[in-house]
Structures are given as structure tokens and as C-alpha cells.
Nucleic acid binder design. Structure first.
Lengths: 274, 274
DNA sequence: TTATTTATGATTGCGTTCTTTCATAAAATG
DNA sequence: CATTTTATGAAAGAACGCAATCATAAATAA
């Protein structure tokens, strides 16, 4: 029989969390835990695969691991040229005495690694990104604060209601944020909880700077984050031509200083910033 | 046909590494990559399961994720005999469905390491102790929550006003706490911020269990934490005689089950609990 | 309210994986 | 060298998972 939509979505969320926690679960086990038939479990799994939140295997399901959410340590090494370019442009935005938020994701980890080499001091860094916290806590002059929240080891990030609430303790001079995809409408992310948290951060921040490499262009994700009108700045290695074609407002195409040596390492053109 | 033993073992090693790299591989894929029949692949997989190097699923195999972070394996060994004894006594107190607080400090890290080996499931673990969070977040069935707070790298712990406030989100069935010293008056700690946070935790917890090895006996520290009257239970490897001499109330000397094999490993006598 | 939509679980047929058995050929063993 | 041991792949049948179909009942829309 039909069931209210919010119940279905809540169950799928529970399902995704179960798989995230256990890393792998066979279909039968999922049926037992959710109290649904195999047919429904399969349908839910198919929906989560569609949203790229899990990976299906014969007889079960894995938490997402290969293309979009490899575990943090695996992802670190990938796509470093583009991320380095973005980081180089972001670092001058960090001024002594300020309070900055670092979002989850490998792009922000790359920024943290670069920032560690030429830190502004003193600064306060607030993050839900454990690897970021760990490397920056070692640097003299940097105070590192973690949000509260549930720790998901595959992403090494803190999420959930408590994370969102602990954002309210802060006001940020600037928040460095990331997303899974950008289209003409704006920015998208794959998990509702991440979006919620990011929105909470944006409300507490004077400026919001989004860091997305070119692979995110014209890519969709299940949850809408923000329209371009609310994006303060975009740091990317995508060319103006590609941004134009993807429908990113031209106000966000404007250049900052180019770094020729870095450009040579990437097939994309220079970094842009409003 | 029969094949030399070292070839077989080398192939199994390759197989284990493949699975570790990819986290999951279906049997057919393994056959292709190793150039063997399904029968042989299955037999190899069974051998690796026997050695606890992988986990088998219907249609494939998963890496055994504890082995994916070798740094934790190294750290596992440095738990002293006293801390192990305390951990062994603490673990039965952790019941499925409960919410538990793990304090900062190496004693609680040792407890977390022991708990990981025989976890109750499902449980919620709340901590300000980053190493504890990291190792427990990998265990299926354990939900790990971090408090907010400033990260102090030397102690790998979260402290400060935000940490204290984020304790207020929780109520604990039981809190495992540590301290720097115990005297006839009660328990002491070295940092005011730690004491503040511990007091906040104790207010939110139904039971408070303190874990202190015998070296803490008759040791002072600058900040007073609690009198013995407010201590729910004490887990220690100190003998009743020494506790008596140090002025610890005899109500806290009472025995639980002894573990003879463990006693032999320590110069101190058995673990006590109220 | 009535009508429409749709989430669900049961069923059926098909494809996949698993276990067991067996013959074979090469390694081990003496 | 002769004998024993055993790693291998093939095959058969059982067990299992999957996609498609369908009736049902509850949610949604009118």
C-alpha cells in the first residue's frame, strides 16, 4: 500500500546511514533491519544508487567508494593540480586575526595543506573536516576548532543535528565551501545533511567562497545548495568559456592574478574569482 | 594441475592486496585479474577468510578494514598491562543501545582499543578524544560523536567553552572518565578546562566511572575534580591495601571477577569496582 | 467526498553464484 | 625414478538474488 513520501525518504536515509556505518550489508539484512520486503529494499537501494549515495553489489550494497566518494585518504592524491591552483588563489583571502570556516572535502584539505606552508597568524579555523583539523592544529599561531557531530569515517567529516547546532556558536569572516556539482541554476550536493550544515554556515558567515574544480561543471547532485545569486565568490580552474557555456553568471568569471607555472600543469585555463 | 606452493601463496597475497585496494571486488573480476578459474579464486578467498585477511560476501569479497590503517595497528600494542586490566573490567559495562562518554587520555584510548575487539552493538560513543573517535568510527554498529571544541594537538583532545556547551546536547548512560591524581580527598586534574568539561559531563551522566591506573595514587594535581562521595565507580589496578593506605573509601574497593592471567602480568593486585 | 496516483509485497521465471564431486597433471617426497 | 600428495578446472545441481508483473490499499489530488 502507498505510504507518505516523507516516510519513504526517511527510510532511505536510514538505509544509507546503515550502509555507511557498516560499509557493506546484504539485502536480506537490510530487509530485517528496516522491516520491509526485499522488493522495497531493492527499490530503495536503486534510488540510492541513482543519487550515487551507495554502490550496489550482487546480493548487497556498499557505501559509496569509487568515483564520487572514495575514502578520504584515497581521494587525497587525485586531481591535485587543479586543487593546488584553487588553493593558491584562496590563501591570500586568509588574513591575520580572522575566523574562517573550512568545509569538508578534499579540495578544502588541499587548501589546508597549502595554507600550512604559508600561514597567516594568528587565525582561527573552524571545520568539520578531521584531516584539516589534524594538520592545522600542529601549526603555531593557528587555533583549530571542530564542530560537534557524528563522525563518518569514510568521509572523515562531522555531520548531523549536533553539527548544525554547533555552527551557531560561531560567526565567520569567511567560509570556504565546496560542492559536488554546479549547473546554470547554482550549486548542488549529494547529501541533505551536508547541505543543511552548509546553509547554516553560510548564514553565520560574512563572505562565502566556493571552491570547485572543473570536473564539477554541469554535474548534478540530488540536493540543491544555493543559487548563484547567493554565491560570494567562485574559485575554480575551469575556463571562462566553459563557465559561460555551463551558465555560470559572468560576474563570477572575473580574473585574479594568474600563475603561469600552475596553468601549464592543467588542461583548464586559469583560476577565477569575483 | 598442481602448482608450486610459493606461487599459490604469492597469488593469494596479490589477491588480498587487490581487494584491499579496491575495497570490494566481485569473484568474476578477481578471476579475470588473476587469470584463474572461479573454483581456484573461491578456494583462495576461503583461505584468506581463514586468515581473517578479507571478508567474504555473496558474489565477491571485502577488505578487512582494520588492516587498512596500519598506524592504528602499531599504536595498539603500547597499552600497558594496567590499562588493559582496567579496560577488561570496563567493557562489560557497555551495553547495546546505550550512550557512553569516553574522556580524553591514554587510559580511555586503551579502553577504546579493547572495546573495538569485542564491541557491543549498536552503541553511541560521545568523546572529545580524537584518537578514540578515529578508531571507533571504523567499527560497524558504533556511532561516534565528537564534541565541539578547540583541538589541542599535543593532547589530541577538544576543550574550551564550545566543548562544554556541546556536552549539553547529550545525556549519557555512563561516562568513562580519567584523572591525573587521586588522594584521600578525591580526584585531581591538571587543567581547569578539563575539569570544567568533566564536571559538565558528570552532570549529564547517570553513572560516572573513573579509570585510573595505580601510578595516579597519592598524586596531586592543581585542580580539584570531585570528592570520592560523587564517584560512582573506580576502575584501577591498585591493590585494596594501597587504596586503603591512600585514603580511598573502602566502598570503592569491592571486587569484581578476577582474571588470574591478567593479574600475573602486573605487579599490582586486581581491579576494583563499586 | 470521489478519483487518481503510487508505494508495497507476493509471485514467477530467469540468471548468477555456490558447493560438491571428480579426473588430471604437476609438485613433493622417498 | 616411483609414489604420493595436492592444486587445478570442469561439471552438475542446489541455493540464491534479481527483474518484471500484478493486485492491493493508502496517500494525494480533484
Amino acid at each position: 500500500m502507498k505510504v507518505p513520501l516523507h516516510i519513504v525518504l526517511a527510510r532511505r536515509d536510514r538505509l544509507a546511514k546503515l550502509i555507511e556505518q557498516e560499509r557493506y550489508l546484504p539485502v536480506k539484512e537490510l530487509c530485517k533491519r528496516l522491516g520491509v520486503s526485499e522488493a522495497t529494499a531493492r527499490r530503495d537501494l536503486a534510488a540510492l544508487v541513482q543519487d550515487k549515495r551507495i554502490t550496489r553489489t550482487y546480493g548487497g550494497a556498499l557505501s559509496e567508494f569509487n568515483d564520487r566518494f572514495p575514502s578520504f585518504r584515497e581521494r587525497r592524491s587525485l586531481g591535485s593540480a587543479a586543487k593546488l591552483k584553487i588553493a593558491k588563489q584562496a590563501i591570500p583571502m586568509i588574513q591575520p586575526g580572522g575566523t574562517y570556516f573550512f568545509d569538508s572535502g578534499t579540495t578544502l584539505f588541499a587548501l589546508a595543506e597549502a595554507f600550512r606552508e604559508q600561514p597567516a597568524s594568528p587565525v582561527r579555523i573552524v571545520t568539520s573536516n578531521l584531516p584539516v583539523a589534524e594538520i592545522l592544529a600542529m601549526v603555531p599561531g593557528i587555533q583549530v576548532f571542530l564542530l560537534a557531530g557524528q563522525l563518518f569515517h569514510l568521509q572523515s567529516t562531522l555531520l548531523g543535528e549536533t553539527a548544525k547546532r554547533s555552527v551557531e556558536f560561531w560567526t565567520f569572516d569567511l567560509a570556504f565551501l565546496s560542492a559536488e556539482g554546479m549547473t546554470s541554476e547554482g550549486l548542488w550536493n549529494s547529501q541533505a545533511e551536508i547541505v543543511d550544515q552548509q546553509k547554516a554556515v553560510m548564514r553565520r558567515s560574512q563572505r562565502n567562497v566556493f571552491c570547485l574544480d572543473a570536473t564539477k561543471l554541469e554535474r548534478n547532485a540530488p540536493h540543491f545548495l544555493v543559487p548563484w545569486s547567493e554565491v560570494g565568490a567562485l574559485l575554480t580552474d575551469a575556463s571562462p568559456a566553459r563557465l559561460e557555456k555551463a551558465g555560470v553568471p559572468s560576474a563570477l568569471h572575473s580574473f585574479t592574478a594568474k600563475d603561469e607555472s600552475l596553468e601549464a600543469q592543467s588542461d583548464e585555463m586559469p583560476v577565477h574569482i569575483l
